[in-house]
Computed example of a mutant assay.
Amino acid sequence: MSTKFIDGNVAMAEAAVAAGCRLFAGFPITPQSPMPEYLSGRLPEVGGSFIQAESEVVSANILLGASYGGLRCMTSTSGPGFSLMAEGISFIIGCEAPCVFIDVARPGPGMGGIGGCSQDYLYAVKGLGAGGGRAFVISPSTIQEAVHIVYESFDIADRYRTPVVVLTDKLLAATTEVVELPPLRALSELPDKSSWLITKRDSMKFEDKRICQSMLLPVSSQEEFCIKLADKYKQWEEKETRYEEFMLEDAEVVLFAYGSVGRIVREAVRQLRKEGVKAGLFRPVTLFPFPRKQIGSLHYERIKKAICVEMAIPGQMLEDVERSVKGRIEVDFYGRGGGMLVTPEEVVCHVKQQMEGSGD
């Protein structure tokens, strides 16, 4: 381990290199541009390759080819660029090509701004391209957690042959902190992919060909593949769901938040506790699979208030929280949009207003 004082973009880039990433293909877009800028110099130092593609559309498709060539590979982008990658991501899901996408979200819709936000949730979690395919989506709250998550994301991608989306925002990517970076992985120790990689064809027999394709014929084969994906997503829910509970043991007010907002809400919980309010935080870390069972098993007989906090208007994770609660309690919402930041003081004020309004 090495300790450095660096910003989130560079920390995530270095974590990817340490995990064995040896190809990056991407395109500059604020606020993630420091990540490819850093990797353009760092990857050649470890025998890797950096490609500035013509566009984000091309970036995603380069990952498909690189993955089938056996490389651990990734791209990073922000909201509008992430949208352009939809077709490529859909093909990647259909071809089961492991790779990592880091989205440093920016406000939208459209071009939006460059502030902190939670406005890519619906796209990343529910709408990655045609056909209903899903990616593994995970969201860190701190730079140190982002380092661990990016480092592990390549293992998750290889384990399940899936794209992994690390969903972040400007608050995390542009903040500078002291972090511990993991050591470089030995490439010889990475998972064996020889059973599915594109290789030299040594015979003319049809059954010996190995191709990368997302269209399967006859139709029954395509259905079998959809069933296979559904089973994979069920495995994620059973084995890979991650979340954080903070001061929930006796909480009467439960706040739901993810990513950078989770860090903000954690501080709000501390302030509320000092003022005698029994508040707690439930922070989903994996957004798909979403910790719906864990949210559903909270002690609703004790909970008086449930509030979802996001830097998005209207709420996006709110829908999944409401589904997980299953009507046991009404879920209130507090959000800021367009790049306006949520602050701990605002959350504290909102909680107190809600409690006063209900007579608690």
Rank of each mutant, 00 (worst) to 15 (best):
S2D: 15
T3Q: 07
F5V: 07
V10H: 01
E14H: 00
V17K: 06
G20D: 00
C21T: 11
I29Y: 01
T30K: 09
P34Y: 01
G47D: 09
S49I: 07
S49F: 03
Q52L: 01
A53G: 07
A53I: 03
E54C: 13
A60K: 08
G65A: 04
R72E: 00
T75S: 12
T75R: 04
S78A: 12
G79W: 02
P80K: 09
P80F: 08
I89Q: 02
S90L: 13
F91N: 15
I93T: 10
C95N: 05
A105G: 09
G110L: 05
M111Y: 05
M111S: 15
I114M: 09
G129C: 10
G131M: 02
I138Y: 01
S141I: 03
S141P: 01
Q144K: 10
I149Q: 08
Y151A: 02
F154P: 11
R159V: 02
V165G: 04
V166G: 12
K170W: 02
A174E: 07
T175H: 06
L181P: 14
P182F: 00
L184E: 09
L187V: 13
S188T: 15
E189D: 15
L190I: 05
P191W: 01
P191Y: 00
D192N: 14
K193V: 03
K200N: 15
K200G: 13
R201K: 15
D202Y: 12
M204K: 08
F206C: 11
S214M: 06
M215F: 07
L217Q: 13
L217W: 04
S220K: 07
E223I: 14
E223N: 11
I227E: 15
I227N: 14
L229G: 06
D231N: 11
E237T: 15
K239N: 14
E240D: 15
R242A: 15
Y243I: 06
G259R: 14
G259Q: 04
A268K: 06
V277F: 02
L281Q: 08
R283W: 01
P284S: 01
P284Q: 07
P291S: 05
K293C: 13
H299Q: 06
R302D: 11
I307T: 03
I307A: 00
M311W: 04
I313L: 15
G315A: 10
M317P: 00
L318I: 01
D320N: 04
E322Q: 14
I329F: 03
V331E: 09
D332S: 13
M340K: 12
V347S: 05
V348P: 10
Q353I: 11
Q354S: 12
M355G: 02
